[in-house]
Design a protein around this nucleic acid. Sequence first.
DNA 1: AAACAAGTTGCAATCGATTGCATTTTGAAA
DNA 2: TTTCAAAATGCAATCGATTGCAACTTGTTT
Lengths: 346, 346
Amino acid sequence: MNTKPETTIHDIARELDVSASTVSRALKNNPLISEKTREKIKQVAIEMGYRPNVVASNLRTRRTNTLGVIVPLINRHFFSSVISGVEEVAYKAGFAVTISQSNDDFQKESQIAQALFASRVDGVILSASMETITSQHLNLFTDRNIPLVFFDRVLDDVAANKIVVDDFRGGLLATRHLIEQGCRHIAHIGGPLNLAIYRDRLNGYLKALSQAGLQPLPEGVLHNRLTRSDGDEAIRQLMKLPQLPDAIFCANDTTALSVIIYLRQQKIRIPEDVALVGFSNEPFSEVVSPALSTIKQPGYEMGLKAAELIIRQINGELSANDFTTYVMPTELIIRESSLHQGVVIA
Amino acid sequence: MNTKPETTIHDIARELDVSASTVSRALKNNPLISEKTREKIKQVAIEMGYRPNVVASNLRTRRTNTLGVIVPLINRHFFSSVISGVEEVAYKAGFAVTISQSNDDFQKESQIAQALFASRVDGVILSASMETITSQHLNLFTDRNIPLVFFDRVLDDVAANKIVVDDFRGGLLATRHLIEQGCRHIAHIGGPLNLAIYRDRLNGYLKALSQAGLQPLPEGVLHNRLTRSDGDEAIRQLMKLPQLPDAIFCANDTTALSVIIYLRQQKIRIPEDVALVGFSNEPFSEVVSPALSTIKQPGYEMGLKAAELIIRQINGELSANDFTTYVMPTELIIRESSLHQGVVIA
DNA sequence: AAACAAGTTGCAATCGATTGCATTTTGAAA
DNA sequence: TTTCAAAATGCAATCGATTGCAACTTGTTT
């Protein structure tokens, strides 16, 4: 009933009257070992139900073949897509993936970093919390040359490979599109400005406006943590302004959804009275009514890339002090929420 | 520029002229060590930037403080919610969480099991793939008393703690509700019958019908893997039947969404012509148009429970051969897609 | 047959922490 | 001061795999 005893290389060695080193080498297909003994050893290993003890191996080799991933919230489509991509690549390369969520709490992010460091992951893939301003908590990794790859919510002051979408262009395209629809009083619900992605989206928005000779809506540029309730609060605030917005560019789909729900309640028409563009292309965006225009972010592909990069860094295939920021393409998806011609899904 | 050398307990021991055992005990707050030396040791440990080598500790203690989680698809709201719950509890208890996805592929599920086994996770939380029929691949764990907890897609023939929702009751409530709305020709798009949850949902559906003296729609009970395209195919098939359905109970929201989109295209009204109930309460269900009636599944809470159970098993707090199936409550959420009175969101 | 290189295998230390048991120290009682 | 239990510390083996170096087998070449 209890655990059957584990077979070790020593047991196999004893069985065949060879040394443990020979067994170790044979199982690793080391060419030093003759084919004959190698085959025999492998045979016996199977018969004895041997499983290598990776923990012992890890101790000796100082590698864990484990990647740490820190995201704000696992349970969020964009992030779970990235994780899915990371897992896919990591699995094929023989790495395990350890996931932790910061809940957008800097304190927890730091503690997770500690924990991952203590557990000696070989590399860390990270998207920062909404609260993250400093990067000292990551010195643990940078100090010891433990590879670090950022995605989406990257930190400017850390030298590392980074994967982002073209947030500036996203903001630009979204806003320009709204302008083309005839909107002139365009508000923006943005994220915290300590994070580059939200600065970039904001700047894209500002650029599109200035290119069209327009001003941002006075008091109409808000910044919060972009949750459902933040969005709710923001839209209430916007609808109290002396000059009402005729369009809103939201820095994520979640707040755009809050806007849709609130406006629907208030019988304010979308897009006729207020046009709307979000960011991220969450699954609900396509099916919400009205369908939400948004900027597509290739989460899964970003995950693939992040994993590829970190594994190459771990394997020393990438220069250790020459980092690149990979900009993935964004795409504006135009749906009902911003279409003034008013095409309705057939 | 390169990695600074690691401090070990031996370094600390040498520094203070004590033995490594003393250091080890002191750092673990072992009462054998006097408070005075304990304090001194901790002090020096901090000064020297000591970090315990968990790998060495794991080797010695034969524990990894790691939980393995296998889900069909990370990037799916229900599953990522469960993972989120697992992570929450695990983190607090000092466990790392390793995630893998089977992509609903039995082959991959088996390989993941192998990998988790090899990496010596302390316990495994699992929701089976659509293809999983046998459970031999899990003998690895059961043979060696490695705790296993199933959730949602459980396997009948494995003795383990299991967490499910009341799928039978879900199917019953959903179907009964459709009957109460006046529907008489109710179809069902279900999942593979090798999985108990889909059998239960089907049986709930059948029970509700028979209680009302109704028959299942002839040729109107389909089984597939419940993807978007499966749903698409299924609804096309149903709409070719001699007796058209006036309602459909879908075993998940994904296929229900396929149905909504197809019927919308065909200008078939929901719920007037065909009423609809899904299962799982995905985030899009609330906002799709028409809003989808569905059965709520408490994913996050299931994750919390799964983690709690497996950790208690690992710690030997639970009898090792006395297993329970925990049935979480389901709740019918009634929305537009099944409301014949036709209340529209205000 | 001697000599030597190439091909195989083994020895033993190492990775760092843990722990049963032995030993030493401390302090109080006799 | 002696005695002895209690308290504190150290010894050394252990967890299982890896690897530089030494040692031993082959087989080939003069």
